[in-house]
Amino acid sequence: MRKATFIIPAIVIVMAIIMSSVFIVDERQRALVLRFGDIRSEIEEPGLNFRIPIIEQIVLYDSRIQSLDTAPIEVTPSDDRRLVVDAFARYRIIDTRQFRLAVGNGGLREADRLLEDILNPQIRAVLGADGVTSNTILSSDRAELMQRITAQARVLAEPLGLDVLDVRLKQTALPLQNLEATFARMRAEREREATDERARGEEAAQRVRAQADRTVVELVSDSAREAEIIRGEADAERNRIFAEAFGQDPDFFEFYRSMTAYERALTGENSSMVLSPDSAFFDFFAQPGGRAPAAVPAPVE
């Protein structure tokens, strides 16, 4: 009974010592073995490992790709048009020993802070370089700018035991205090363009109207000239026909003209005319079948 009293606690203690000395490194992790705070060894391969309990401490680090979102910062391109940009980076731990020396007990949180301190100056330097305008940053050319930032940040992050895989701009915008001025300038430019367009349209409309008025005047003038020519030819033809008719039978022509004059003069049911007694106008009424002594004037058309 007394032996069991001592054996059971001893077995428990031994099991506890064995359990505390065994640790597993996942395939997504890397491990450092610390002895009294100093780095004793580095474990990169996954599997079952052993340590000296109490004396040695195990620190595990994630070996997968990490993400960092930087805080928005202001940059000033070469055209002095300030922009607010925020970026994100992808990185991973490639040297666990160097990483431990750089961040201490801070881990990934401290690594994010140190890496952001590297990225922000590089972003300002690249985006503010000579020849880099706001239009360049906002265009497809900014992919080349991101490659430059990534390359420079990778070099500076190596002492931290980190490999910067990629840096990208998430958002590029104007500062709040500049938005209203920018919108006002854009409105003024659009209004100026609209005014220019309206002026050009009015000028074109005036040219079209002037051309149309000129065409109308020319058409009316040509039509009037042709009408006068046609009327003149018609009058000449009428006079020719009258002359031929008069030459063929002067008595009938005189009679016809007198009848036409009577028809035009004596209109309505009650017509009155005042003439001298010796007027030749009614000779065909006074002397039926006879001729008037004088020619009857031709009626006015």
Rank of each mutant, 00 (worst) to 15 (best):
L115S: 03
M1V: 01
T182Y: 12
A143K: 13
E42H: 09
V25H: 00
L83F: 04
F242G: 12
R291S: 11
N178D: 15
I17T: 11
S271T: 09
R113M: 01
I13A: 10
R291Q: 09
Y262L: 10
T136P: 13
A292S: 10
Q152W: 10
F50L: 06
I39T: 08
M15Y: 11
A227T: 07
I123K: 05
N178E: 14
A261Y: 15
E233R: 13
R2D: 10
E74M: 09
D141I: 07
R40V: 14
Q66V: 05
R30M: 14
V85A: 02
A212F: 07
K3S: 09
I73C: 04
T70L: 08
V208Q: 13
A204Q: 14
E110R: 05
E203H: 13
G47L: 00
D95W: 01
K3G: 04
S223P: 12
A194E: 12
I39L: 08
R198T: 15
S78R: 11
S271E: 04
P293D: 08
A188Q: 14
L156N: 11
I123N: 07
P121V: 00
G128P: 03
R207T: 04
G107A: 00
Q248E: 14
D95R: 00
K3V: 13
L83G: 02
Q206R: 14
G106P: 00
M259Q: 14
R200Q: 15
A184M: 06
N105R: 13
V75G: 06
E244C: 07
R198A: 15
E44N: 15
R264G: 14
E226K: 14
E226C: 11
V220M: 09
A173L: 11
A10S: 00
E202L: 12
Y256I: 15
Q248N: 14
G37H: 02
V25E: 00
T70V: 12
I52P: 01
R207D: 04
D38N: 03
M19R: 12
V22T: 09
L160H: 01
D79R: 04
D130N: 11
I137V: 07
D235N: 07
F88A: 12
P297I: 00
T182A: 10
I43P: 01
R124S: 06
K3N: 08
D278W: 10
F183E: 15
P46T: 02
A125Q: 15
I54N: 03
R168N: 12
I73L: 05
Q122G: 02
A236Q: 08
F36G: 10
L108I: 07
I54A: 05
T260H: 13
S272R: 14
S271I: 02
R64M: 06
A199M: 06
A199Y: 08
F252S: 11
A295V: 11
F36P: 04
Q287N: 14
D112M: 01
F183L: 14
T172G: 04
R113T: 02
E44I: 12
L108A: 02
Q177W: 02
P53H: 03
A205H: 04
G104V: 03
A294L: 10
V220S: 08
N120E: 13
Q122Y: 04
T76W: 08
I54R: 03
I241P: 03
D62V: 12
V300T: 09
P299M: 04
S223K: 10
L114Q: 09
E191Y: 11
V216D: 05
M19S: 13
F253E: 07
S279A: 05
Q122A: 03
E158W: 05
R148E: 15
I39E: 04
G47M: 00
A16E: 10
